[in-house]
Design a protein around this nucleic acid. Structure first.
Length: 275
DNA sequence: TCGCAGGTGGTCG
DNA sequence: CGACCACCTGCG
């Protein structure tokens, strides 16, 4: 079992990264490391004093998968300086999650995950994704004493019925997943906002999440209930005025909107959890 | 029991 | 267009 180690990794914190709402397949271990799966590879990551250690990972896999997945080529120190500039509130938010990075995730996995996420809570979202993978995904092999599964491919999902998906407990989202899978099989993966919004179960919020987490569009600014709360609390915008929040993000954060959103999201959730 | 959780789609005015 | 409202499911 090979382990790959990278030194001098900055602006990086596993809990910040895996608990900022962008992914659903990672679990924190008692020792503070995280075990999970992406791009068909189950691994365990641990990090301390600038040293990132990835277990069950070869050098090739690090270069081909994890370097990009963890967004290690981006200078977050520079980004944080830009966002802090002239914005004390943002500087405060960044302090809550200074090691956040936007993961570059598989587009299809992100589409499925965020359709499931709508009007749902995190433990159940994670449960649905695991169950869906176990029942209908391909095996990704054994690791740390269990078998891992990938999310089902579009073709596999497109051939299922709502009844087939019953055990996954997706509720009314099951028909969205099947409809989206059928569209993707027929027309390929979506590439534009228009194509995203044409998928069943994808509205403005989910589309922005897909763009940010699955398409590398860092200017996307998903507005969910937490962002509405934080934009109200921090910038005083009316809690229900999504349009004004989107405008504010465009004007003040610009190309860095998605990253700003992550700092704000992490900040308000952490604050809420500590209450 | 009932409201709520990373919203969306359908229906009105 | 914008404002409502039902919606699977499970938990407190």
């Amino acid at each position: 079992m090979s382990k790959y180690i990278v030194e001098n990794v900055e602006d990086f914190n596993l809990r910040n990264i895996f608990d900022c709402g962008q992914c659903f397949r990672w679990k924190e271990e008692e020792d503070g490391s995280f075990t999970g799966i992406a791009f068909g590879k189950p691994v365990n990551m641990s990090f301390s004093h600038g040293s990132l250690s990835i277990d069950n990972c070869t050098e090739d896999e690090f270069k081909n998968i994890w370097y990009n997945y963890l967004d290690l080529g981006r200078n977050y120190g520079e980004i944080k300086e830009k966002l802090k500039c002239c914005d004390n509130k943002m500087a405060e938010a960044i302090k809550a999650g200074p090691g956040i990075r936007i993961l570059n995730q598989d587009l299809w996995e992100i589409i499925i995950s965020f359709i499931i996420s709508q009007n749902n809570n995190i433990p159940r979202i994670k449960g649905c994704i695991e169950k869906l993978s176990e029942l209908f995904g391909k095996s990704a092999g054994e690791y740390r004493g269990r078998e891992w599964f990938n999310l089902p491919e579009p073709e596999a999902l497109a051939g299922l019925t709502v009844e087939d998906l019953g055990a996954v407990k997706l509720g009314y989202r099951a028909k969205y997943l099947i409809g989206t899978a059928k569209t993707v099989v027929e027309k390929g993966l979506p590439q534009t906002e228009e194509e995203l919004l044409a998928l069943p179960g994808v509205g403005p919020k989910v589309a922005n999440c897909i763009k940010l987490f699955g398409m590398g569009k860092m200017d996307s600014f998903p507005i969910d209930v937490w962002v509405m709360r934080v934009m109200n609390e921090v910038y005083g915008i009316d809690e229900s005025n999504k349009k004004q929040m989107a405008e504010y993000a465009g004007e003040h954060f610009g190309e860095l909107g998605g990253i700003a959103q992550q700092y704000l999201f992490y900040y308000i959730r952490e604050k809420n959890l500590n209450k």
